[in-house]
């Protein structure tokens, strides 16, 4: 009777959690993602301690992985196949030098990814097809530009950016696993697919500053919102 794998995942995760009395202390949520079983996972912090909660029939806080810092927060999250997760962690143990890192939950075990490439200290919009296939945006502070980064399971590699694009704002994995992102197109909002190591334009530019978000409707239709002047 209880052979539904998604439900099992949900219940196994919630089996070790503790119910939290909410709203009695300082907490904030930074990001939300849909798990493979359809439940929602929200991440943030409570009293400066990283916090994640899962919504099945109610929001329930989860125990943190032992690799999570004692002080800090979870900044972002994405799934990496059923049961697997990437968590973006901000370690605020040294308030003068907060450090961004990544944790991976694979087959129920958490591990810490290597430090981000030099010059990068942020992770935005992580998307993944599996533990060895993660993409995210970062910002190169010294060079004032977006960095598009790929984690292949053993190392980070920075991808090129669409021609003329210094800042990128949106990422999405197509149903076939192809990376889709925004980029400058004739000075306006454009979108690109990353194919064979290069960005290929998707149609012509849209009026506006840039594509802000990419989402997929329930019937598979790709939709984007455009930031306007």
């Amino acid at each position: 009777m209880f052979n539904s794998r998604p439900f099992l995942f949900s219940v196994l995760v919630t089996s070790s959690l503790w119910l939290c009395v909410r709203d009695t202390c300082a907490q904030s949520y930074n990001a939300i993602c849909t798990l493979a079983n359809g439940d929602l996972l929200m991440v943030g912090h409570k009293n400066d301690v990283p916090l994640m909660s899962i919504y099945g029939a109610a929001w329930v806080d989860q125990p943190n992985p032992e690799q999570a810092p004692a002080k800090g927060e979870f900044r972002a999250v994405c799934t990496a196949g059923p049961g697997n997760l990437f968590l973006v962690v901000e370690d605020e143990s040294d308030p003068k030098k907060p450090k961004i890192g990544l944790l991976l939950r694979e087959n129920g075990l958490w591990s810490e990814l290597p430090a981000l490439p030099k010059g990068l200290n942020s992770v935005y919009d992580p998307v993944a097809t599996g533990p060895g296939a993660l993409w995210f945006r970062s910002w190169h502070t010294a060079e004032r530009r977006t960095a598009m980064v790929h984690w292949n399971g053993t190392a980070y590699k920075e991808l090129p950016r669409p021609d003329g694009t210094d800042e990128m704002h949106a990422l999405l994995l197509d149903s076939d696993g192809t990376l889709i992102a925004d980029g400058n197109m004739d000075g306006q909002a454009g979108a690109y697919r990353f194919v064979n190591g290069a960005w290929q334009p998707m149609g012509k530019a849209m009026k506006g500053l840039h594509v802000d978000r990419l989402v997929r409707l329930s019937d598979g239709t790709l939709v984007c919102s455009v930031a306007r002047g």
Binding site: G203, K204, K207, V223, C224, S225, R228
Partner: peptide, 13 residues
């Protein structure tokens, strides 16, 4: 009112 949302039809937005 001007478009803020676009859909991809396979060849164009």
């Amino acid at each position: 009112a001007v478009p803020a949302l676009y859909r991809w039809d396979g060849t164009a937005w």
